[in-house]
Each structure stands twice: as structure tokens, then as C-alpha cells.
Design a protein around this nucleic acid. Structure first.
Lengths: 217, 217
DNA sequence: CGATGTGAATCGTTTCACAGCC
DNA sequence: GGCTGTGAAACGATTCACATCG
């Protein structure tokens, strides 16, 4: 059995596998809520539109959670995967930019429920500073470094205009952030150790449009 | 696995290629704005973090836009790729759900600038019906089929609570929609011809969290 | 007997090297 | 000479088949 979090690593884990792991967790949590006790790789695969072999191969990257002849105990699977994904403990998150996307994120009750807790909200607009933003009060970006280092924040959400994104990304990275979810339509240039997840809505719509065209619609 | 009629096109285009095409378009548009006239595959590759051979191979799937010894004419590349992606003409889009995410999308001026024009906004909450939503007025979901068929809408954005998503997805699909951008945290079960692009923010944050853990952070 | 974990074979994507054109 | 388009080689991921275990 996997002992501790020997984070890295027996060998490199393919990116597609990493992308699927949270979907396994999601499915397992749904099953747990339904009262299902055990789940086989084939049933889990059917839920997610995969093959049973793929499910087993993916899970084995993070340790052998299953029992031959039985399957995976759902409660155990949820617990292990939450640990693997890193949401067994809450992440304190900084939200930079309190525009319409920022407000949607603060209002999104699913985030805290899934261990992402927005504890700092910052904005460059003096008119927004001082407003209530969920449990936070909007603070000026001038306090970015101080707040992020003080609270030891390593995860930030950037929901700012494209023109401001690169500068602010550098600031949060300099303040110790190692993961950024970026809603701006720009490729951020940052030190390699900082991991960026881009959520470019127009780009995603363009991918959808292209897929429709290719499908003949 | 799905036995689909490959009635159209020379051969199937890999999904990774389809995902990259809009990023080529984005880069080309930036270059056009900078006044750059021609671009080589190697320079374009450097901008996007790819290899030159990959850029050439990807673009050739959609026709040979480049000229040996010269490169790609930026203006031509933009024009061709906009046509390929399907944003040479505006898409009329229906927005279902005028909560905080819906409001953020209506406020997002980048969407219309990139040919995605929200022309109908619907919500189930009577308190929201009648409100101004950008250029639209929020309409009740009871008018969904009528509005979507009347305007011949084929692209919809679903920004509704998870519990309502499946039902509304079926409704928009029945009204002729073939592409859905889904912000709810559920896998929609729809006829195969309907293409769904999921934008599950908590799932994306979990992927980011996992990547951070694997990277040792 | 049923279902996992695992190496081997298959499939698809990326990379490479070069012929051909500007 | 520089750069594209293109087949062939290399690489990585998925699928398969089976030994193993409860």
C-alpha cells in the first residue's frame, strides 16, 4: 500500500490521467451520496464513458485501492482520492479582480464546499475597495503581497482584464503563489514552477464552434 | 467506438489538433494587430510553446495556407482560421440561467467581439423575468422552445443549478440546439449529435490542485 | 467465480528529416 | 537560403488478455 505522500514519484503520470482523477472523485462522491458501498471498475467506467481497464490503470498510478473479486469500497475511494487530489484539507484562495466573474466565483457556493475557500479578495478599482465580497472585504491590490504572504496563500484566481493579467500574475507569483487559475485571454509568462490553469471562455466557445463545424452542424 | 458515419471530410482530425486551432487563430490575430505581415511556423510555435513541425502539421489538416520560403501571411491565416473555426459569421446564442455566472457572461464584452452574440436570456425565476440583461430582457423558460426555434439558435450556454441542468439541456436540445456550453457540475446525457463543452469550475480547480500536488507543492 | 493489477500489443499523436517550392 | 508540406520513425497512451487474489 502507498505509505505517505511521496509526492514525486515512482514515475511520471500522464496528463490525461491527471485530468481524469477528479472525475473519478466526483463519481465516487455521487455514489457515496446514493449509499452505494462498493463499485467495480466496469460500472465506474460506464458512468464516466471510459473502459474498465482504463479506470483500473488510472487508479493504480496512485496506489491499489481496490480488492479483487469485490471492487472499490466507495467510502475508501472517496477518502483516498480527496487526499490524492489535495482537497482533504481546505485551500485558502486569493481572488484577484472583483468584476462580474469575480462576483460569480464568490457567489459560487460549490467552491467552498469542495475545499476552495476564497479568503482574500483584491481589486485595483478604489470604488470597489471596502465592499463586502462574501465573507471578505475587497482590499486594494497594493496590499497583495502583504496579505498573500501573511496568510501563506499558494492558490490564486485571476479574474482581471487581459491588460492587467500579466502584471498581477507576476505579483501573486512573487508573493508565493504556485497555482493560478486565469480567466484572462492571455498566455501568462511565469517561472516554470508556477502552474497555470487557463479558463478562457471565448477560446472554449471557439473550440465548441469548431467541433460543431467539423461534425457537420 | 461509436459507429458514426464519416460522411464528410477526408479523414478524422485528432481532438488535440482541434483544441489547438483556436489558439493559432488567437496568436494570428495578435500578430495582425501588431502589424506583422508574415509568420513562420517556427515563430508561431515559439509563441504558443509548440514545435514548428506540429504547427505545420496542424494547419495542413485544414488546407495548405503557407508558402514555402515565405511563411504564412497573417491576414490570410486569420481569415482562413476564422472560417475554419466557424466564427466568420456571428453565432446567435441562448443563455439559460441568469444567476451570477449568467450575468458575468452577459457582461463579458469579449464574447460578442468574438462572434458569440447572446440574443436570448432565459430564467426560471419569476423575479428575474423582465429584467434587463445586456441587450436582452430576461424571459421565462416556458418560452424556451418558441424563442430558440424562432431564432434558429443552435448554440446555448447553460448556467443553471446542477439539479436543473439535465432537464433544461434536454429542452434546448429538443429545440434544435446542437452545441451546449455547460457550467453545471453534472455530465449531461444527450443524443450523440449534441456536442457538450463542460466548464466545471470546481473540477478545474481540482485538476489544478492535483497538478500542484504532483509537482510537489 | 468475479474483479483487480499488470505487462504486452495496439492505436494514435508527435517528432523528425527531407523533397519541393519561393 | 529559408520555409512549407509530407511520409516515416519515435513516442506515449489506451486497450487487451491473463495471472492473481478475495
Amino acid at each position: 500500500m502507498s505509505g505517505q505522500a511521496d509526492a514525486n514519484s515512482d514515475r511520471a503520470i500522464p496528463q490525461p490521467v491527471l485530468n481524469r482523477i477528479p472525475t473519478y472523485l466526483r463519481a465516487a462522491e455521487d455514489l457515496l451520496a446514493d449509499g452505494t458501498e462498493t463499485i467495480s471498475s466496469s460500472r465506474l467506467a460506464k458512468i464516466l464513458g471510459l473502459t474498465d481497464g482504463q479506470v483500473r490503470a488510472d487508479l493504480v498510478y496512485f496506489g491499489a485501492f481496490g480488492r479483487p473479486g469485490v471492487g472499490y469500497r466507495v467510502a475508501h475511494l472517496v477518502e483516498e482520492l480527496r487526499r490524492v487530489v489535495g482537497i482533504d484539507k481546505p485551500w485558502p484562495v486569493a481572488l484577484v479582480g472583483y468584476g462580474s466573474i469575480g462576483r460569480a466565483l464568490v457567489a459560487h457556493e460549490g467552491l467552498r464546499r469542495r475545499s476552495f475557500d476564497i479568503v482574500v479578495v483584491l481589486d485595483a478599482d478604489p470604488a470597489k475597495v471596502g465592499r463586502k465580497a462574501g465573507r471578505c472585504t475587497v482590499q486594494p491590490v497594493s496590499e497583495l503581497e502583504q496579505e498573500l504572504t501573511r496568510r501563506e496563500i499558494r492558490l490564486a484566481i485571476l479574474a482581471v482584464p487581459s491588460g492587467a493579467a500579466q502584471d498581477l500574475a507576476e505579483q501573486v507569483a512573487a508573493a508565493g503563489v504556485v497555482g493560478i487559475m486565469n480567466f484572462a485571454s492571455v498566455r501568462l509568462r511565469l517561472p516554470e514552477e508556477v502552474i497555470v490553469m487557463n479558463v478562457d471562455l471565448t477560446l472554449l466557445l471557439e473550440r465548441l464552434s469548431l467541433r460543431l463545424k467539423v461534425a457537420g452542424h
